[in-house]
Design a protein around this nucleic acid. Structure first.
Length: 320
DNA sequence: ATGGTTTTTACTGCGTC
DNA sequence: GACGCGGTAAAAACCAT
């Protein structure tokens, strides 16, 4: 490249930058110009220095073609949050060439092959570990918020691990799967929480939760029976300050109703809510339908409908 | 996607305090 | 008149097909 060409290049650059920096002087109204050499912005008319010691964010070297740019640059690609390691992990090229582009000897080739394999192993291993760590933290957080005991969390993490190992994660959020795992494990361990309760403490909404829940249950072949309404009783009765007696009566009502096949197709929470209301009536403890509805998240109408059925089947049971 | 079932929403009337 | 309760119709949600 000739000297004249370089000078032209420099001139062009300076001119374009000059165009950018324009304005009006606050003192005299004169035109502001960019003095590149002194790194100052000054007023053309009165000489006021508007800005000094400007920092040039660009590289201090110059390159006249891509190859030169590559050679002089001391930084790599920008980091990205799209990859778990922000794109900073080691990558081994697939071409069996050395740094000068020469082919490798068979022995070297074999070595690189091994390195590639192990590098890949560690990398994916790490990504799964991080994923798991985050998910387990999430599960822990939700479990404490819901007052779920240790064994439920363990079960949830087992389910999550299985989902992770079966490659069920792609396309689904970590939070979603973690929440679904917790929901499933809560049901399986007999300490169920309703979908509403779970989604209240989760970062994902109910739609996504039910979707991923169904998905992982199917894919993992989990056998989750419908929740037993009885398992809701202790929590709700204590929340409503009802007696042990009332809880016992509620349990009896539910058992009687179960024999009559009243449970099938009905929501377990609804049954539990109705049983609690009916039991409170029987033990002369005052709870309103709206109170029960409040703590159970079941509508009053449903409570009414269910508790009528419960009492009917209870009477039929005692009469016979 | 569809249809059947269950639950919820919204509204009304009744009796009681 | 507010409150608790019961009922109804229509809408919405859910589920299996």
């Amino acid at each position: 490249m000739t000297d004249t060409r370089i000078r032209e290049f420099e001139k062009e650059e300076k001119e374009t930058e000059n165009e950018v920096e324009e304005g009006v002087c606050s003192e005299c109204g004169g035109r502001l110009v960019n003095d590149e050499e002194r790194a100052e912005v000054i007023c053309e008319d009165c000489g006021l220095v508007v800005e000094e010691d400007r920092i040039d964010p660009g590289p201090e070297w110059r390159a006249f073609n891509p190859q030169e740019r590559d050679r002089k640059s001391r930084v790599g690609a920008p980091t990205t949050t799209m990859m778990h390691d922000k794109g900073l992990s080691t990558n081994i090229g697939w071409q069996d060439k050395d740094a000068y582009g020469k082919s490798l000897s068979p022995r070297q080739r074999e070595k690189m092959q091994r390195l590639r394999r192990w590098n890949e192993r560690f990398r994916t291993r790490n990504s799964k570990e991080r994923n798991l760590k985050q998910a387990l933290g999430e599960i822990d957080r939700m479990a404490s918020a819901l007052g779920l005991p240790e064994n439920v969390r363990e079960m949830a993490s087992v389910i999550y691990r299985r989902a992770l190992n079966d490659d069920l994660l792609p396309g689904r959020s970590i939070e979603g799967v973690a929440t679904a795992a917790l929901y499933a494990s809560a049901r399986q361990t007999g300490t169920p929480r309703s979908l509403d309760e779970i989604s209240d403490v989760s970062r994902v909404d109910k739609m996504e939760l039910t979707r991923t829940y169904r998905y992982i249950v199917r894919q993992l072949g989990l056998e989750v029976q419908p929740a037993d309404p009885v398992s809701y009783l202790p929590r709700f009765t204590s929340e409503l300050n009802l007696s042990e007696e009332a809880e016992r009566r509620a349990r009896e009502l539910l058992q009687a109703a179960k024999k009559d096949g009243l449970h099938s197709g009905k929501s377990p929470v609804g049954l539990a809510a109705a049983a609690i209301y009916a039991a409170a009536l029987l033990t002369n403890e005052k709870v309103t339908q709206s109170e029960v509805s409040e703590v159970t998240d079941v509508s009053e109408v449903t409570i009414r409908n269910r508790y009528k059925e419960l009492l009917e089947s209870a009477e039929a049971g005692t009469a016979a």
